[in-house]
Every structure is written in C-alpha cells, then in structure tokens.
Amino acid sequence: MTFRHKLSETGLFTDDALIELLEKHPQNMLDVCTMGESNDPEFPNKFRTGDFRDVPGKVLIEAAKAGRVWINVRQAMTVHPEYKAVLDNMYGDLSKQSGTNVYNAKGGILISSPVARVPYHFDKTETILWHVRGKKVLYIYPMTTEFIPDEAHENSITNYIDDDLPYKDYFEDHAKIIELETDQAATWPLNSPHRVDNQTFCVSVTTEYSTQQSAMKNAAMLTNATLRHRLGMNPSYSRDGAVTRQIKSAFGRIISKAGLVPDTTPTDMVTFRIDPDVPDYLVDTEPFERRF
C-alpha cells in the first residue's frame, strides 16, 4: 500500500541539511556504494563499497547527483535528536491511525543518483519506504519460494551486510510496480522480495521495526540456517507447520544468545573511492578490507 506524508516540510532533507548531516554522522554508520557490473546474472547490480574518508558532505551530495552513487546514512533518524523527534512523530501517528503498537522503530536516510539501482533483495524486518525527493520505481515480487528460496533467506538472515537474493529475468512478469513521487510512502508484506530503480536524484527515509511475527520468523530461520550449516540438514520453513515453526523460533532465540548461529557475512571489501576531480566521482582502487 502507499500513503502520503509531509517529511519534505520538515526542512531536514534539503541539500544543506543533508550536507550538515553527512558531516556529523558517525563514519562507521555511513555507506557509500556504487552498482557493480556483475558477471553473475543471478545477482545483477551488485553493490560495491566505496572509500569516502576525508570527502566533504557537499562533495558526497554532488557525487550522488552526478555519478552512480548510493549513500545509506544508517540510523540517521535514530541517533540525531532532530531526526529522532520526527521519527517518533511518524510512528506515533501510525500507531494512532492503525491501532497497532510498533516496537523499536529505527530509520536511515538514502541519498542516491538518478541512475541508482537497488538490487533484488528482501528486508529482515517490517519496512516502510518514505520517499521525500525525486522519483523512483519500486518493484515488489510474490512471497513464494520461487522468488525467495528458503536457503537464500537463511543466508541473508546470517549475513549482516547483504540481503541480496538470486534473480531471474522472468520475475519481471510477476512484479507489482509502484511509482513513488515526493512525499509518498510505500510498505509491503514482511520479507517480500523487491528492487528499486531511480528515475531522478532521490532522497528517501527507510524505517524498520520488529513485530512478534518478524521476530518469530527470523528466529526460526536462524534455527534452519544452523541445522543446514552445522548438521548438513535440509530444513524448510515453507514446509513447516505452525507448531514446528514455534519450536524452531524458541530454539533460534536460544542459539542466538549462545552464539551458535553461523555467520555467513563475507569480508566487506572497498573497491573504489570518491574523487571530485573525475566526471563521475568514482575511481577504482585495489581492493582492501573496510575498517572505517
């Protein structure tokens, strides 16, 4: 579903406000990426991590407008008081309108180029995309194992930097398409596969929150991932009944606290840097591990 909002009226998403935000935001909570040309047809538009150190906020905004840049200001709506006040109002209004309490809502800000393409992926928690500036197209796909296989889901649950899913060209025949404009938000069922294509320079807020449903499902998926990677079994959330899912969910919370969940997160390698002296602001570098 989609709905309207008034985030553009807050003054927190203008170029000047975003430059100020980028200057003060913790470096370890900022991602500057570009879309790579993957040789794997199942993972097109794979994101590459960039080095933005010592680059002024103004230059990062210019790079997003001129190049192939996608900036994720992680937790911006949560850690900065002026943005947190807006986030609290957003979810306070949602609670009043829906009669549903939300839990531990968090929010980041996405700043992205006109040609940015977000790969085919899913979100681990309930998500709302609050579009603030520009135009983008959201593609949402069915929630079946054809479009989100159990093993791919499990791998993403145990991977802390990558939610990408294997993609096939024919998926487009089944996509629901939503065109988002200024001050329009969209939300979709938990874990629905989706991807996003920009039409212009864009600024969006992405928020996530946990519910009992998402927490139980994630815990069950952790159990299945553990059974698959530790014991060589072939579990399936889609085939499990309600009682089995509840048992696996309880076990998942236990093994998570015990530190027994396998970590499938690869090393985050930096492969380019932002350079204001080249036309698209992107310069390839020798790959090195991100430690900033």
Rank of each mutant, 00 (worst) to 15 (best):
M1C: 12
F3D: 02
L7M: 11
L7H: 02
G11H: 03
G11M: 14
G11R: 14
L12P: 11
T14V: 14
D15C: 00
D16N: 12
L18R: 04
L18M: 07
L21D: 03
P26L: 07
P26E: 11
Q27N: 15
N28A: 12
D31I: 04
E42A: 05
F43D: 01
F43S: 03
N45I: 02
F47D: 03
F47V: 15
R48F: 10
G50T: 09
R53M: 05
V55N: 05
V59W: 15
E62P: 12
K65C: 15
R68T: 02
R68Q: 15
V73T: 06
R74P: 08
R74Y: 11
R74Q: 13
P81H: 02
P81F: 07
E82I: 08
N89L: 13
M90I: 11
M90C: 13
D93K: 12
D93A: 13
L94K: 03
G99A: 00
N101T: 02
N101W: 00
A105Q: 09
A105P: 14
K106T: 05
K106R: 07
L110I: 11
S113Q: 09
R117K: 15
P119T: 09
H121W: 14
H121K: 13
D123Y: 10
T127I: 13
I128N: 01
L129Y: 04
W130D: 03
H131K: 14
H131I: 12
H131M: 15
Y141N: 00
T145F: 09
E151V: 12
E151M: 12
E151G: 02
A152C: 11
T158F: 05
D162I: 01
D163H: 07
P166M: 06
Y167I: 00
F171T: 03
F171Q: 05
K176M: 02
K176D: 06
I178H: 00
I178W: 01
L180Y: 11
E181W: 14
D183M: 05
D183C: 07
Q184C: 08
T200C: 01
C202L: 14
A219Y: 10
A219E: 05
A220Y: 10
A220P: 07
M221K: 06
M221S: 07
L222C: 07
T223W: 13
N224W: 01
L227V: 00
R230T: 15
L231Y: 09
M233N: 02
M233I: 03
S236G: 01
S238H: 09
S238F: 13
S238R: 05
R239W: 15
V243D: 10
T244Q: 08
A250W: 00
F251E: 05
R253S: 06
K257R: 12
T264G: 08
T267V: 10
V270L: 12
P276C: 13
P276T: 04
P279C: 10
L282P: 01
F288N: 14
F288H: 13
F292C: 07
